[in-house]
């Protein structure tokens, strides 16, 4: 045990000593993530694709909806500036792939953000309160789950017309269900943890417990799931576009481009290959990042 002089020494050092910065679990995870070569490589590639998508208009002399009557459905050609070639309407494929990247990435990020906000809040509330509240909330999720997604999307399109905003809503509305289930599961096990009980015993309000104690501790799996949701959403959007339910001409997405390319696969391979390569590369990158994050956030599983 401590004697008096030690205690005073402690007290004195209290005022004198500089506060030491701690190593948060987030920082540890970041360090581990940056040690993962595949994840870092993926982040760099994704960064480049995103950057290209943002500055797209500066990179090409052509606009995405500009028709070059001299070159209709021509292969890649460095001399005339159509480095990825042109499509059946004589539009530059390079700039269209980058505009497609804008739409695909935006759909991926926004729909995931929607699912994140709704799913995390919903799941945390259901899991934290448990009992009847949990049963009712999760049965509602089950009901939504059982609705046929395609039917839902087609209905939306029929009623409100084709609209890029609707795609965000439709995808977000579906993706949050899984997110809510994941968060609820995590919260259920977290609820029994002693630090939550300690907060209860102190009289911290439920709202604050959820936002201060529960959500920060479920973010690990949530972030991992998020990085895996983004490619899933991009893929679903592509699939919708492939079916003709996606974005409207002249705007485009990778799905639309692939769909167009697939129709002329024998005559003009480039129309399929370029958008497909970009899509595949992006999906790979997100998956590698997700993997890296999982290892970084939960080192026990390695």
């Amino acid at each position: 045990m401590m004697n008096k002089s030690e205690k005073t020494a402690l007290l004195q050092s209290a005022s004198a000593a500089k506060e030491i910065e701690g190593r948060s679990l987030w920082r540890d995870a970041r360090i581990r993530l940056f040690r993962n070569k595949a994840a870092v490589g993926s982040m760099i590639i994704l960064g480049i694709i995103t950057l290209l998508a943002i500055i797209a208009p500066l990179l090409s002399p052509y606009a995405y909806d500009q028709i070059d009557w001299g070159y209709i459905q021509e292969g890649p050609n460095w001399e005339n500036g159509h480095i990825f070639g042109t499509d059946g309407n004589g539009r530059d494929l390079f700039i269209r792939v980058l505009y497609g990247a804008r739409v695909s990435l935006a759909v991926g990020l926004l729909a995931t953000a929607v699912s994140l906000i709704i799913g995390v809040t919903y799941g945390a509330i259901a899991g934290y309160f448990g009992g009847k509240i949990d049963s009712i909330m999760m049965r509602f999720v089950d009901v939504l789950y059982s609705l046929p997604f395609m039917f839902f999307v087609i209905m939306l399109m029929v009623v409100f017309g084709r609209n890029i905003f609707l795609i965000f809503v439709a995808l977000g509305a579906v993706e949050w269900l899984t997110m809510a289930r994941i968060v609820r599961g995590q919260t259920l096990s977290l609820r029994r943890r002693e630090f939550i009980e300690a907060a209860h015993a102190t009289g911290v309000s439920n709202f604050k417990i959820i936002f201060r104690h529960v959500i920060p501790n479920v973010l690990g799996p949530v972030i991992v799931y998020m990085t895996l949701t983004i490619p899933q959403v991009i893929l679903t959007e592509s699939f919708l576009s492939f079916l003709g339910l996606g974005v409207q001409e002249p705007l485009t997405s990778w799905g639309v481009l692939i769909s167009e390319g697939a129709k002329v696969i024998e005559a003009s391979t480039w129309m399929l290959i370029y958008p497909a390569v970009f899509l595949a590369l992006t999906l790979f990158c997100f998956n590698f990042i997700g993997d890296g994050l999982r290892d970084a956030l939960d080192p026990k599983d390695r």
């Binding site: 948060s24 987030w26 009289g203 920060p216």
Partner: peptide, 28 residues
């Protein structure tokens, strides 16, 4: 108040110990 058996499990791993100890004060 209450003190728990598992010392690590009773502390929120995402909070600094300053925040942890301050929580009852901030609340009351």
């Amino acid at each position: 108040q209450i003190i728990f058996q598992d010392p690590l499990a009773s502390l929120n791993p995402r909070m600094t110990i300053g925040e942890i100890i301050a929580e009852p004060l901030v609340t009351h």
